[in-house]
Amino acid sequence: MTDPIIRVNDLGKTFGSGMRLSLAKQADEVRAVDGCSFEINRSETLALVGESGCGKSTLGRLLLRLIDATAGKVYFENTELTDLPAARMRDMRRHLQMIFQDPYGSLSPRRTIAQIIAEPLDVFGLVRSGRQRRERVADLMTQVGLSPSFMDRHPRQFSGGQRQRIGIARAIAVDPSFIVADEPVSALDVSVQAQIINLMQDLQKQKGFSFLFIAHDLAVVRHIADRVAVMYLGRIVEIGPKKQIYGMPQHPYTQALLSAAPEPDPDRKGKRIILEGDVPSPKRVPSGCSFHTRCPIRQDICGIERPPLREVAPGQLAACHFAKPFPIPRPTSSQAVPA
């Protein structure tokens, strides 16, 4: 029944573990990603959510092998990507594309829009003539809502939202089957974010690619995700279908994240779980459950034994010894905004 396009098995990445002469070898190691396993189904959108430094961007790059893993395996349609030779990996990139966070930095400043969008087409020899290339670029620009007449302009002349559209056009140019989007809207103005989220949602429906959508904000992915994974200090602490994660989160960190975001509603001030302290440095991940230093429901065992991800409801997994449903209180339809 399930048809995973991406399978991730015990994936890990430790930075600074290479050759080093210093004695403080252990202390320098940063475990950015640690023992992550999950699957992404065909045409599914998995949202990966977590605070800064939780390793979500690293995980996204590991899947596309923009950085090499130090442990575990990634499979794309039964091909193991993690040990593929560089040349074969490059061929695989036709199916695996990425949309970047920074719409200002991710477009080469000295190249025209047409050159940027056509680059993947050229790499994989998908266009034969200059005319065909321009036609294809014009078509792609129309699909992302840009006027093809701007084809020969340079990125600096466009606004953030327009640049992100260009980045999306580049990613869908080769018709990939899997796209990683790393915080694609967090650098954009509020009124433009919705445009880009809707655009990506529609393109995904239309083209059927699978999607890993990385964000730091649970609200942003609510409309686009099928399933949500929550990361804390390099580990996935909860993963499950959207409805359950938003309605019945089981891990105390997910619950805190959901309640911490200030809602644009003056009648719901200050009703939130406030976590103590800061996120610990990934150089010194706490023993046992890495969340136990801030957890409101911790007990003695949490500092000793690391809880595994276990099924707490159909399709929903949480890594907590004391996982229990925690319905997020929601007033009935507070939406009174006239159209």
Partner: peptide, 22 residues
Amino acid sequence: QEPYVEAAIAVGVRTPVIIFRH
């Protein structure tokens, strides 16, 4: 370190081309 170099790698561009073009 610029994101557009990473973007080129992600798109599948070969290393010599990245050096000369980006």
